[in-house]
Design a protein around this nucleic acid. Structure first.
Lengths: 203, 203
DNA sequence: GAGGGCGATGTCATTCGCTGACATCAAAGT
DNA sequence: ACTTTGATGTCAGCGAATGACATCGCCCTC
């Protein structure tokens, strides 16, 4: 029972608590029910018991409501990279961060599945997702630079890390027999190393 | 003197030739002059001597006008991957394709610079660019699969290729002493190999 | 405890991207 | 000439997003 579980389907006046949470839950419900495009901001606001204008005070646009968690993910990634052992190679520091993020997502698998289904059904949301991932990569690259890693190594390592993460994420989402997410990330990274070393893996 | 260089600043009736080219040039000019957001579709259409409605018959939205060339780039990438020597490793086939694309872009450096400046100044355009790059990666991955490369190797290799390309592109754009683009791509790929093999490149 | 400051919310008007429906025009065939 | 056809224009309208301003409830102060 979290703060976002407030009953919001009854009549509410101003100043009911947790406006942001109500808007977010109302939005996600509607996106799931009828799809992103078929949902208007007016409908979201109405379900949350707020005015349309208020929605735009909490979320810069209709898409952003689905990406509220990316800030927390970014903090986790950055702090993990920064805290990695001094002697660790850049790719190892990134791997650690990705595994930590994977472990975090794993705690909310149901939500992640639902959210991803909504995103993949809509190109605008795919765009937003990609720029969020790019932002995560940029933050990790900056963290690497603070560790003394030079360019272009910092950016390359961080972006390749995101590629690895995306690949592992796909398997984690699609498989019914859930493998451990951090373990999938390690497997994906190993595969990447094979692939970049130029081994001929045809077949 | 290309087809898009038609004089479009005089009064034109219907059925002047090359409507798409006029719209594209008018749009880019305006994006450069006052920025993407400060330009309305109505203004673009007016400068091109067409109705606003017509703009949307040629371009699905206001952003797409800047990404018209990505289809050609994709064809080049795919055909190069497919045509790579039978024995070539996936990463080698991708590298070949990227270098071919780099060589193509190199022929239009001025345009590329101008276009990139517009894109980087606007988040919406950044989003669109990212999804176009993702689309290129997906197409290359498909081409690799046709060469018999299995998943996840195909997708990983293709996406890492895009990462390498982006990194090289940045240097190619930002440097005044223009280094050869395909050569920058080779250097970027080498750097990537160093980075993923786990070598400690701090300093 | 009356008044005032202040942050959150509501209301209203407006701009702009984008779409559907339908009219209109010019060229090309018959 | 008549028709057909494809490209363009016109018009109406929706919905996202923003600015300006009003309103409300809470809290602080005297």
């Amino acid at each position: 029972m979290t703060l976002t579980d407030i009953k919001y389907d009854r009549v509410m006046g101003r100043w009911e608590p947790n406006a942001r949470g109500r808007l977010q839950q109302a939005a996600i419900e509607l996106y799931v029910e009828r799809g992103f495009e078929q949902t208007t901001v007016a409908e979201i606001a109405k379900r949350a018991g707020l005015a349309e204008r208020t929605f735009f005070r909490y979320f810069v646009d209709k898409r952003e409501v689905l990406f509220w968690g990316s800030a927390a993910l970014q903090e986790l990634l950055v702090s993990t990279v920064v805290a990695a052992p001094a002697g660790a190679a850049p790719i190892a520091a990134i791997a650690e961060a990705l595994e930590a993020a994977g472990a975090l997502l794993q705690e909310r698998r149901e939500g992640a599945l639902q959210r991803q289904a909504v995103i993949e059904a809509n190109p605008e949301l795919r765009e937003r997702e990609l720029i969020k991932l790019a932002s995560l990569a940029a933050a990790m690259a900056e963290a690497l630079r603070e560790r003394g890693v030079a360019e272009p190594a910092a950016t390359l390592t961080a972006e390749v890390g995101i590629v690895v993460f995306k690949s592992a994420f796909e398997y984690w989402i699609s498989e019914t027999n859930q493998r451990d997410f951090p373990q999938l990330i390690r497997a994906s990274l190993k595969e990447l190393k094979d692939v970049t070393s130029g081994g001929s893996s045809a077949g």
